Simulated scan of single mutants.
Amino acid sequence: MAAQIIVSYRTPADPKAFDKHYFETHVPLAWKIPGVRKYQVSRGPVITPAGPSPFHLIATLTFDNLAAIQSAFGSPEGQAALADVQKFATGGVEMNFFEAGEV
Results as ranks from 00 to 15, higher is better:
11 T>Q: 13
18 F>P: 05
20 K>V: 13
60 T>A: 05
65 N>M: 02
12 P>V: 11
24 E>W: 02
27 V>R: 07
9 Y>H: 09
80 A>M: 10
81 A>K: 05
21 H>F: 11
23 F>N: 13
99 E>P: 03
94 E>C: 11
86 Q>N: 09
68 A>W: 12
83 A>V: 08
67 A>S: 13
42 S>R: 09
95 M>K: 06
89 A>Y: 04
39 Y>W: 15
49 P>R: 04
101 G>F: 12
20 K>W: 04
100 A>H: 10
87 K>W: 00
47 I>T: 10
77 E>W: 06
84 D>G: 06
8 S>C: 15
49 P>A: 04
11 T>W: 07
56 H>S: 11
56 H>P: 04
21 H>N: 03
15 P>V: 05
50 A>M: 13
63 F>A: 02
56 H>N: 05
59 A>W: 00
11 T>Y: 08
49 P>Y: 08
37 R>S: 04
19 D>R: 02
64 D>E: 14
67 A>P: 01
33 I>L: 06
53 S>M: 07
15 P>M: 06
78 G>Y: 02
25 T>D: 14
29 L>T: 04
65 N>P: 01
71 S>D: 07
52 P>F: 10
1 M>H: 14
21 H>C: 04
71 S>G: 12
94 E>V: 14
58 I>K: 01
43 R>W: 01
58 I>W: 10
20 K>D: 14
101 G>W: 11
58 I>S: 02
2 A>E: 02
82 L>D: 10
42 S>P: 08
51 G>H: 03
55 F>L: 10
76 P>F: 07
46 V>T: 07
12 P>D: 05
43 R>L: 13
40 Q>V: 12
13 A>D: 14
13 A>S: 14
31 W>V: 15
42 S>W: 05
40 Q>T: 12
65 N>H: 02
11 T>H: 13
101 G>I: 06
86 Q>P: 03
82 L>S: 07
30 A>G: 05
30 A>T: 03
87 K>C: 06
102 E>I: 06
27 V>W: 00
30 A>M: 08
38 K>D: 15
1 M>K: 13
99 E>D: 14
94 E>W: 09
95 M>F: 12
25 T>V: 15
85 V>Y: 00
28 P>N: 05
16 K>G: 10
40 Q>N: 12
72 A>I: 02
88 F>C: 00
24 E>C: 04
